[in-house]
Design a protein around this nucleic acid. Structure first.
Length: 217
DNA sequence: AAAATGATGCTCT
DNA sequence: GAGCATCATTTTC
């Protein structure tokens, strides 16, 4: 699949786009990771979509061209990375929920260490070697974790993710992917919480976020 | 193994 | 002022 082909799939349908993003590689400098979990959101009939009510300063990029980064801050704690979809005027986006690390694991680890931004916790971190090993398996297994490891923040909002010269971008997948679907995570009842708009790589379930589908580690 | 909880700040009403 | 597209830790079965 080429970048142009991926862009057309995203333009056509956000759910097909969410599926097509499985297996794509997220790149920032030396950092690389293979996307294994996504979710679709669309304004027209989905109350959970940030653009469902109205067009605001925050959700502005969702109303533009497909293939751009919609980044927002959530729960006062985490940044979330989305890929815009649909043609201009019809807001939609794919939330990138999890990835399998490929390259630059040392940098990801350093950014993900608990309390890494707290100057007084360096000593604490040294003592918890077992926790860091545990951390390794779940480096990117959630949208907040992935953003932290890739240093994704407000500054990345609006980047063209399908342009290989962007500081943060996507390489379309090469092979095929076996897909498993599920209900989206963290959606309140009555806001489309049971729509099967969560997509996962069936052969990489150990790297997806919780709750994981039954029968996986 | 699953459920509860507190942290934390931005966005929109 | 309320409500989050979460995470790590603690508490409970």
């Amino acid at each position: 699949m080429t970048s142009a082909e991926l862009k057309e799939i995203l333009r056509e349908d956000v759910l097909a786009g969410a599926e097509a993003l499985l297996g794509a590689v997220l790149v920032r400098g030396e950092l690389r990771a293979r996307i294994v979990e996504t979710e679709g959101y669309r304004a027209e009939d989905d109350p959970a979509c940030h653009a469902f009510r109205s067009r605001t300063a925050r959700n502005e990029v969702m109303f533009g061209e497909p293939g751009y980064a919609y980044v927002y801050f959530n729960y006062g704690v985490h940044w979330m990375l989305n890929v815009t979809a649909h043609e201009p005027g019809r807001a939609a986006a794919v939330l990138v929920r999890a990835a399998a690390p490929l390259d630059g694991l040392d940098v990801m680890r350093a950014r993900r260490e608990i309390g890494a931004e707290d100057p007084d916790s360096a000593i604490k971190n040294q003592k918890s070697k077992t926790k860091n090993q545990k951390l390794d398996r779940d480096l990117l297994s959630g949208p907040g974790k992935l953003a932290k490891a890739f240093d994704i923040t407000r500054k990345d909002n609006g980047l063209n993710l399908l342009d290989p010269t962007s500081p943060l971008h996507l390489l379309p997948r090469t092979g095929s992917v076996r897909v498993v679907t599920g209900s989206r995570i963290g959606i309140a009842e009555g806001k489309g919480h049971d729509l099967p708009w969560r997509f996962m790589d069936a052969d990489a379930l150990e790297s997806v976020s919780r709750p994981r589908p039954r029968g996986s580690r």
